[in-house]
Design a protein around this nucleic acid. Structure first.
Lengths: 313, 313
DNA sequence: CTTGCTCGGGAAATCGATTTCCGAACCCGC
DNA sequence: GCGGGTTCGGAAATCGATTTCCCGAGCAAG
């Protein structure tokens, strides 16, 4: 009756509600969870919550979930398959009502298990291996191609790409976007792996700068690596954009504060998170059973870190 | 027996473990939670997870908690008392094993309830009203006084302070630190409320700049407001540091990338989070019953956003 | 007026692991 | 060889809300 049975007498209901009031009765959530075999919780699995891209996403998901009456269990995988597996296992154990995941490992068997037992999964940023999952993605190929093309159109020919892990969607697609643009223009590829990490990007850029023929522009595949790249450039004493143009994927809040303000490809993270939660809630409500994929476009934020290359000696 | 009863026959144990293996048996976490009246979860309550200060903290807590076998329920309060209350209520309902909270409202009655039912609470950054809670704090008064003193020692006399909410510990203490330093030097106070928010700080700085006599230096009480302040300065076309020196409390990763690199007071967030989790685990283990307060010192990161003021006309 | 049906409310079963309880077997020493 | 004390494994109670079941009352129709 306490769960809102409509066929209950009014007088009786009043009596009970009054008792509830007087005794300061609070239903035991744990007992409820056991009986219902679910907990009003959503799992959010991200590779790195310190990355502003993901903290913005977590923030948005959390907000929407809270308003819909859910709690959020945040899982940080450190880009490792192990932690991801452990966390997904835990989420299954907790019988969460849905999972938003930006997978470090797209093929964790737990993802299939989740879907098997009816827990909806929404892939965020990166797809998962299971067909049944929904997905909210950014058009990485086009975004990175646009970024690269901007450099080409500005007059650059030696353009290096600081990339992320190729074994995940985002890394592979962004690389593809870069390659598409470069090949279309008949330019030579120059790729360095920054593993989506600050330090690796720093090292990568340092390595690039050591080469006999330096590039005149960089495309950096995410915001952490952009910090690393900028650090390496600063250490090498290179001026941006005259000596090295740079365009970043992701547009964190500090992008317009640095010198020069960073030209960036922004993802509509807030809207993407909104879509992800909406997809989950549709599944929970049973409104939809067909998998859906939603792809968002990047948006170019033109600032001052890109200018034509210096004339060649 | 499955919970590791030591007084169990070896042969029997083997037989059971084999059965466990074969049937792919997974204990139902929800049933376990109900029976034990607890869930292997820690609650982390922060005002804004998008703020790098807190995302770093959440990240560190999450990591340590995971290694200790706990999950982390992240609660974002948006600096509102309402959301904080709702979340604390939920954490009580989930019977979490401990709570790390950076309170928006230090006196929520739920904090007392948590402690009443034996759930340890550690205050982070800002104290809570209940005596029984542990606390991990930064020495805000000294940190801000040091920051202000640096400006004074550099030769500034008109120093404005962009402050955060005075009704929370950090805001009040940082303000006090500024006032201490200014009064000690016999200088006039100039305070603006930025509510710890980017936009409010932007507006505050804009307001300050509109005054007939402008300050020559700013102390900004946290990293979000620093972004706002820098934005306002840029919009007004003021050069840092010659026309306006600036020192920020908090040292986010972008601080050394901006132009000029930001002079900042850094908090050892990682160590603070480590202490917080350690305090919780001590409580859970029952090793300690006396409340503890740990105070960490800020660390000055001298960069280029502070220089002597231009000579007066 | 009686049969049949609906509705309200109380009682009991359920979720599944943990914890307690108990009887049987076993060991030791006297 | 027997009483007292362990040890071990099975059985039952427990956690507390939800869900199902069921009976009695009330009402309508024949």
């Amino acid at each position: 009756m306490l769960s809102g049975d409509p066929r209950v007498g009014e007088a009786y209901r009043q009596r009970v509600l009054q008792a509830v009031e007087q005794l300061d009765y609070r239903p035991n959530q744990l007992a409820r969870n056991l009986r219902k075999q679910r907990s009003m919780t959503l799992g959010v699995v991200v590779p790195d919550i310190e990355n502003p891209h993901f903290s913005e996403m977590v923030r948005a998901v959390e907000d929407l979930a809270f308003n819909a009456g859910y709690r959020v269990l945040v899982c940080n995988t450190d880009e490792t398959a192990d932690k991801q597996q452990a966390y997904l296992e835990a989420l299954i154990g907790e019988r969460v009502m849905g999972v938003v995941i930006s997978p470090s490992e797209p093929a964790s068997p737990q993802i299939g298990r989740l879907l098997d037992i009816g827990i909806p999964v929404v892939a965020f940023d990166r797809e998962v291996a299971d067909e049944r999952a929904d997905a909210v993605l950014a058009d990485n190929v086009r975004g990175t191609r646009t970024a690269t093309k901007l450099l080409i159109d500005t007059g650059h020919e030696r353009i290096a790409y600081i990339g992320g892990r190729r074994d995940v969607e985002t890394g592979a697609e962004r690389l593809a976007g870069y390659e598409l643009a470069m090949r279309a223009a008949g330019l030579e590829l120059r790729e360095v792996d920054g593993a989506f990490r600050l330090d690796a990007a720093d090292a990568g850029v340092t390595e690039i700068l050591a080469a006999s023929v330096r590039p005149t522009a960089l495309v950096v595949a995410n915001n952490l690596m952009t910090v690393g790249a900028l650090r390496a450039l600063r250490r090498a004493g290179l001026r941006v954009p005259d000596e090295m143009a740079i365009i970043g994927i992701d547009d964190p809040s500090w992008a317009e504060l640095i010198d020069p303000p960073l030209t960036a490809m922004a993802q509509p993270v807030g809207r993407m998170a909104g879509d992800a939660v909406a997809l989950l809630l549709e599944r929970v409500a049973g409104t939809r059973t067909e998998p859906r994929r939603i792809v968002h476009a990047f948006e170019l934020r033109r600032r001052l870190s890109v200018c034509p290359p210096a004339p060649q000696p």
